[in-house]
């Protein structure tokens, strides 16, 4: 769980970096996307790096989901619905830790939509295009506010997921020590905030007409 989570976090950082290229204009954005496809050539065939990355990501996602589902099932076995408390009270746990499971499901659904939308371009509100930049701009036009809204909601869910996920991953990897806890919390909160904001900026910028 922690290891695959870490891979996905690293990926998100790179992904956000790419996204933010949108503010440097169409050329830079499309160029970046193209570069990803030819990265590693001629050592790797064209799209080789991309598929390698996609494979690793897919494997990570699947393992991550598998681990999550088994944890979920274990938790249900450890305290079945028939044994739930009549009164529950949050003592210490963060809101983000609550959202891990259903938030995770939301994120999975969103990821599928997101790939269909901006990668494969099967779903193409505002018109399909070969230019990733145009796909983006088309997809988040003000009239498709509901796409933006869904996107925003999903990114916030990712933020919450990361807030607890980063903390928990660090703890599982053995980093947690009493005197490191403030730092760990800062890393978890900081990183998830940066990623959330970083991912929110491009579509909002499009929707509000800052990028066209």
């Amino acid at each position: 769980m922690a290891v695959t989570g870490a891979i996905l976090v690293l990926y998100l950082i790179a992904h956000m970096y790419g996204n933010l290229k949108v503010f440097s204009g169409q050329e830079a954005f499309d160029g970046y996307a193209h570069n990803l496809r030819v990265l590693g050539t001629p050592l790797l065939p064209e799209h080789g790096f991309l598929w390698l990355a996609r494979l690793i990501l897919l494997a990570s996602v699947l393992i991550h989901i598998y681990a999550a589902v088994s944890l979920w099932l274990r938790a249900r076995r450890a305290r079945p619905a028939s044994q739930r408390y009549q009164v529950t009270k949050r003592v210490h746990r963060t809101y983000s830790s609550y959202t891990m499971r259903w938030g995770g499901v939301l994120i999975a659904l969103f990821t599928i939509f997101h790939i269909l939308h901006l990668t494969v371009n099967v779903i193409s509100p505002g018109g399909a295009s070969d230019s990733p930049y145009e796909r983006l701009v088309n997809g988040f036009q003000p009239e498709f506010w509901f796409v933006t809204l869904f996107y925003v909601a999903a990114v916030i869910a990712v933020g919450f997921h990361l807030r607890h996920g980063i903390w928990s991953g660090l703890a599982t990897l053995g980093v947690n020590q009493a005197n490191r806890q403030p730092k760990m919390n800062a890393v978890a909160t900081g990183l998830s905030l940066i990623l959330t904001v970083g991912f929110l900026l491009p579509p909002l910028a499009v929707t509000f007409g800052l990028v066209s």
Partner: peptide, 13 residues
């Protein structure tokens, strides 16, 4: 049949 730890922290609290 104990559940798995997801580092939520209620235990220590």
């Amino acid at each position: 049949d104990f559940g798995g730890c997801t580092n939520i922290g209620e235990c220590a609290a």
